[in-house]
Computed example of a mutant assay.
Amino acid sequence: MTPNQTDDWTRLGSPTARLALYLPNRPQVLAADAALNTPDVPCLIRHNGNHWRKIFSILAKLCAPAEQRWQDYRDLELLHRHEMICFADCLLQDAQWHLVAGKASWQRLGLDPLDYEPLDDAGPVRVSGNILLTPYPDYRQFSNRTVEQVRAHLQVKGER
């Protein structure tokens, strides 16, 4: 079976997720896997390459429990219960947290960064309530320092 990108799905992961990461582009997904609630992250990485490995790795670093290695969380549990990646043109009502990643996603959702407060004085993350405008999840833009800041904010506000 060859990977193909379908246009009829707007999220990847658990429909009851507490955290939604909004991205502008979908990964290529095997047609049989497009509707799965529990995607196979290692398979998605194999089919989509290093770019998606970085996205899944940053999301795992943000969400993995403190007692678990983020690599194990990424490969075994990510997107199964607590997280989803969303490609819709609106914020999902059910998510507790909305991480809107990158300028293209901010614009698609009609969010103006000037309406949001900086998470800290030197960081690139802006926040208002349960919505965080973040850099695109790439190591150059979403540094380990930024991961720690966002992770701490989610923990303080009750994510885990």
Rank of each mutant, 00 (worst) to 15 (best):
L59E: 06
A31K: 14
M84D: 04
A60L: 04
R81P: 00
V41E: 02
D40T: 07
D33E: 15
T38Q: 09
Q68C: 10
Q71F: 14
V41P: 02
I55M: 01
L44I: 11
G129Y: 03
D33H: 15
C43I: 05
E117D: 06
P137N: 11
L30F: 15
Q71P: 04
L114Q: 12
A101M: 14
N50K: 07
R108E: 14
K61P: 02
G110P: 13
G129V: 03
D138C: 10
R26P: 00
A34D: 08
G129D: 05
A101I: 00
R108C: 09
R26N: 07
N48Y: 04
G49V: 02
H47M: 09
G110F: 13
G123W: 15
D33R: 13
D120F: 05
D75H: 08
H82N: 06
L92A: 01
L30Y: 15
V29W: 06
D89K: 15
A60D: 00
V150N: 13
R145A: 07
P113M: 12
Y73E: 03
Y136G: 00
L99Y: 02
R140K: 14
L36A: 10
A60F: 07
W52P: 05
P42G: 07
R145Y: 08
G49I: 00
L30W: 11
N144Y: 08
T146F: 05
E67V: 10
L62F: 09
D94F: 09
A35I: 09
K61V: 01
D120S: 13
G129W: 02
V29R: 01
N130T: 11
G49H: 06
R53W: 14
V125E: 04
V29K: 04
I45W: 02
Q141F: 12
R140E: 06
Q71M: 08
E117W: 05
Q149S: 15
F56H: 10
D112F: 11
A122V: 15
Y139G: 04
D120K: 03
L62I: 07
D138V: 12
L59S: 07
A104L: 11
M84R: 05
L109C: 12
W70C: 03
F142D: 00
Q28R: 05
Q93E: 12
I58S: 01
A122K: 13
I58M: 08
A32P: 07
L59A: 13
H98W: 13
P113V: 09
F87C: 03
P42Y: 08
R69C: 03
V127C: 01
L111N: 04
L78V: 02
W52K: 09
S57I: 07
M84E: 02
Y73Q: 05
A31Y: 11
A104D: 14
A88T: 09
E83F: 00
L109M: 10
W106V: 12
P118K: 01
V150H: 15
P42L: 02
P124S: 14
H80W: 15
L30C: 09
C63L: 14
D89Q: 14
D112G: 10
C86K: 04
R69F: 02
Y139A: 03
N130F: 10
Q71E: 13
Y136V: 07
C90P: 00
R46V: 09
E148K: 04
A104N: 12
H47G: 04
H98C: 13
L92D: 05
L76V: 08
D120T: 05
N48A: 04
